[in-house]
């Protein structure tokens, strides 16, 4: 038996919205420690890693570790049936091999309870070992600013160059019709830390060129949290981390560009 109760369905709705553009189907792992998933896009260039710790749930029970395969588009549709402030219960029986994942949504005043279930599927997907890494540069910035920059530069080109130095981070793109760039200057944290402030921890300048279409997908996680951190080292995958308050994170990894 697994059973996880989230105080607000909206968090889970936002998580699925953040993942479904990049990933169509994924295995979800339930263990004593919580709920996690790792999945790559079909081209194996981008990867997402979700962690929801057991102690972030209102209640959490997992008698035996289970991996359940779901179609994220179907899950997204199902979650549209939940009110944002509904309490959400996810549960599955593993007595005879779970073939469905069940959801119940209870309104804040407990007057309405709805139940839905999602058929599970067998998914044969590659998973990878991601080592713990020290990065050369970590940019911590507003997630809405990140979304805006990706949207703005997508109107110019297909790739973005992210150049981090001690002074700041510059996002730039060029295309047939022209080019554009946005520079965010490093700000030391000051009193009343501005929500839009950008800070950069850096050992040495780092630059990466990345396809904007993947970053547009990653930006779908912005509604989950005010901040995103971008972790960069030359020639290794870039990691974008969106922390989900009190409960976990979504991390996206994107392979660097090939030098032709």
């Amino acid at each position: 038996m697994i059973e996880a109760v989230l105080a607000q369905a909206s968090i889970f709705k936002k998580i699925v919205e953040a993942l479904k553009e990049l990933i169509s189907e994924t295995n979800i792992d339930f263990s004593e420690a919580g709920i996690s998933l790792q999945a790559m896009d079909s081209s194996h260039i981008a990867l997402c890693n979700l962690l929801l710790r057991d102690d972030g749930f209102k209640s959490y029970r997992c008698d035996r570790a289970l991996t359940l395969g779901v179609n994220l588009n179907s899950l997204s549709k199902l979650l549209k049936c939940a009110g944002n402030d509904d309490e959400m219960r996810i549960f599955a029986n593993d007595d005879s091999g779970a073939d469905q994942l069940n959801f119940s949504f209870e309104s804040a005043n407990s007057e309405r309870v709805s139940e839905f279930s999602l058929k599970l599927m067998d998914i044969d997907a590659d998973s990878v070992d991601i080592p713990d890494m020290d990065y050369q540069a970590i940019i911590d910035m507003s997630s809405s600013e990140f979304s805006r920059i990706i949207r703005d530069l997508s109107s110019v080109g297909e790739a973005v160059s992210i150049d981090a130095t001690k002074q700041g981070v510059k996002f730039s793109s060029a295309g047939d019709a022209g080019k554009g760039s946005i520079l965010l200057k490093h700000q030391k944290s000051v009193d009343g830390d501005s929500a839009l402030a950008t800070s950069i921890e850096i050992n040495e300048p780092v630059s990466h060129s990345l396809a904007l279409k993947f970053l547009s997908s990653f930006a779908k996680a912005a509604p989950l949290t005010d901040r995103v951190s971008i972790h960069m080292t030359e020639d290794v995958p870039v990691m974008f981390e969106f922390k989900i308050s009190e409960i976990g994170h979504i991390r996206f990894y994107l392979a660097p560009q090939i030098d032709d």
Binding site: I45, L47, V128, I130, A255, Q257
Partner: peptide, 14 residues
């Protein structure tokens, strides 16, 4: 267009 390498060439398969 941007050519990017597979993540499998960076991270080992589990």
């Amino acid at each position: 267009a941007v050519n990017q390498r597979s993540l499998l060439s960076f991270f080992g398969k589990k």
